[in-house]
Amino acid sequence: MLDSVIFYFFAGIAVVSAVLMITRRNAIHSAIFLITTLLATAGIFLQLRAEFLFISQIILYVGGIMVLFIFAIMLVRLDVPLPQIRSRTQKWIALLVALAVGLEAGVVIWLARKVPGQGLLIPNAAPADKLAPNTEELAKTLFGTYLLPFEIASVLLLVAMVGAVVMAKKRTDA
């Protein structure tokens, strides 16, 4: 029961922050609400006993990517509220897409409620208090089953480094 309360607490914060984020006019306010959304998502990871994922979300997403976002907003002058583009068809298309997505999600949840076991996707999950220490387990899996993707990740990071600098340099050379 405590688990439910905590889940609804974090989920509520996540949903409310997400709604606030997309309705703000000032981009920095949106960035702040994105931060709260990401923190609430991290809380949900924690609630699922994925401790290392929780702290990775905070360090990488909130501590890294949000700094990047805020720098971008500040450096490119996006914080001035933009004039809104009004178009009649845009509203109806948005409404249709939202309805379609909502219908799909509802159908999936309705069909999955009949799955026996403890959840929608993981019918054979281990009981919560018998899980092994999270960091060690994640490390064992990372360097065991997923060793090749791990090495490929380093190449991916290399590509990202080179790409970032090449694109930035091109601008200043022009």
Binding site: G64, V67, L68, F71, A153, L157, M161, A164, A168
Partner: peptide
């Protein structure tokens, strides 16, 4: 901004 991007990668 470039510093922030490089920091992100080294953070990962």
């Amino acid at each position: 901004y470039i510093i922030a991007m490089l920091f992100m990668i080294l953070n990962v």
